[in-house]
Design a protein around this nucleic acid. Structure first.
Lengths: 270, 270
DNA sequence: CAGTGGTCTAGACCACGAT
DNA sequence: TCGTGGTCTAGACCACTGA
């Protein structure tokens, strides 16, 4: 099936332009997407077809498509074709700490924060899973030590996991606890109803506030593998620190797939 | 100056591996960065030198470097070389709504939120600038109309700008106001001391709370130009809605350079 | 001017998916 | 089997930077 949408491509390429040919071709295809002539999940013309339409070599055509892939606008499947990606993932989870960290969830309802995220999208709680669990004691990274109010290099308890929701991995997480907090069920692979926060409160610490720090970057190759990220998808680095009064009792670090989450915060005027 | 760091590259490439040669080469260079053998702003060996070290053609070498550039790990300069990028921009601004939206800043001190961000990094307030200002009335995009509690397609006032801090563009912003709110100085290019929020309160609306929605993606080409983004740098889509009681009185939309900002939130346990 | 990265050609061989 | 995208070679010409 040859798409005839991009007609007479040669006429629309300016070889004298400063803008490289491959970018001009990418511009034209992007335009078709933005104008709705190519919709989400539509198949782009094959590389052979684009070579014909634009009168350029395969290398140049592939570079144009590579641009669009790096922008997250197009996804390629070997042996199949290239397809337009939807601009926002309709199934993205909403991460709403104002709600997800509310005490009633973990204390009364036994729900973990990720359950709350998933429930808000109507996802089956059964699809909230974890794997690659690792429990160990390590020297805290400097940023974690700082947040926990410990001297650099202090040993802390760490639980690492990969979290799933709705059949997709969503985040790689590390929970860091000071050694005197990491006792009992907090050292188990599964912390039970209400999760880590419920267990911390069981110890007598009343959680009073949380801080969250977000930054954004492109993923490392192992994060691409573990989170099954497509090209052109960034990740969010999240640091969440839990306080019992003035004392930081937990530092939670997550690398979150940027196309599977949106973040929602509420600020009261002060 | 030829770097001799990556010695006998050929011996470290496995041509029978499933992993393509260009990715193997990228892996080796990335490893040198991660292990600290190549530090921030260090120059990579030239393409010619890498061709010699790995015994591969320029196309393959360039592809390896292209991978690293797309990951935001390396920056190239035509006629000069390729350089290691620092992992986090030390000069990144901290966006801390809990503080930056505090009323005393705009009401008592006449500071706009971006001033607060910049001041927190010790930046000269003089470097907080705006340009590309556009004032108009437009049909609100659906997401904006929804947040403002208006019917789809309702006409609103819009102020678009590009914001600068510390000599770099940091965000492309649109401020949307319902027409009955957009009066007086709120329709001017410069809203005066304390900015939009101060002028809204001048009208008798007491701002009581804000919501912020964040999502992340790779930039469009015009965003790359306007924000002077390097390859491999994502952007953050931010929607901030300001409420006077139950009434949403402003929707602020920003596209923020992902390498020039970190985000900091505080949540009180409920 | 020499050295650097940026673009483009014209091929080759391969792995994968659908038929 | 055929059409698809993925990798790689071996060259050419160009634009920019710095000495």
């Amino acid at each position: 099936m040859t798409s005839g949408r991009i007609v007479d491509g040669t006429a629309r390429i300016d070889p004298t332009s400063d803008r490289p040919v491959y970018k001009q071709i990418a511009d034209l295809i992007r335009q078709e997407i933005d104008r709705g002539q190519l919709e989400a999940d539509d198949k782009l013309p094959s590389e052979t077809e684009l070579m014909r339409q634009f009168g350029k070599t395969r290398t140049t055509i592939r570079r144009a498509i590579g641009e669009l892939a790096a922008e997250g606008r197009v996804r390629t499947e070997r042996g199949v074709g290239a397809f337009v990606k939807p601009s926002v993932l309709p199934e993205a989870l909403v991460r709403e700490p104002y709600d997800r960290l509310a005490r009633h969830h973990y204390r009364d309802e036994g729900q973990s924060p990720l359950y709350v995220d998933a429930a808000s999208r109507g996802l089956n709680p059964e699809t909230v899973q974890q794997d690659h669990v690792e429990l160990d004691e390590v020297r805290a990274p400097d940023d974690v030590a700082g947040r926990l109010g410990l001297e650099p290099g202090a040993v802390v308890f760490r639980r690492r996991r990969r979290m799933w929701a709705g059949g997709m991995p969503t985040q790689l997480t590390s929970t860091y606890l000071p050694l005197d907090v990491a006792v009992g069920a907090l050292r188990a692979a599964s912390t039970g109803p209400g999760g880590t926060h419920a267990r911390i409160e069981d110890l007598g610490y009343e959680l009073t506030s949380f801080t969250e720090n977000l930054s954004v970057r492109m993923p490392r190759p192992y994060e691409v593998r573990e989170l099954r990220l497509e090209p052109g998808v960034p990740v969010v680095d999240l640091y969440q620190t839990a306080y019992a009064g003035e004392r930081p009792v937990e530092c939670f670090v997550a690398v979150i797939a940027g196309d599977r989450y949106v973040f929602k915060y509420r600020i009261d005027a002060g």
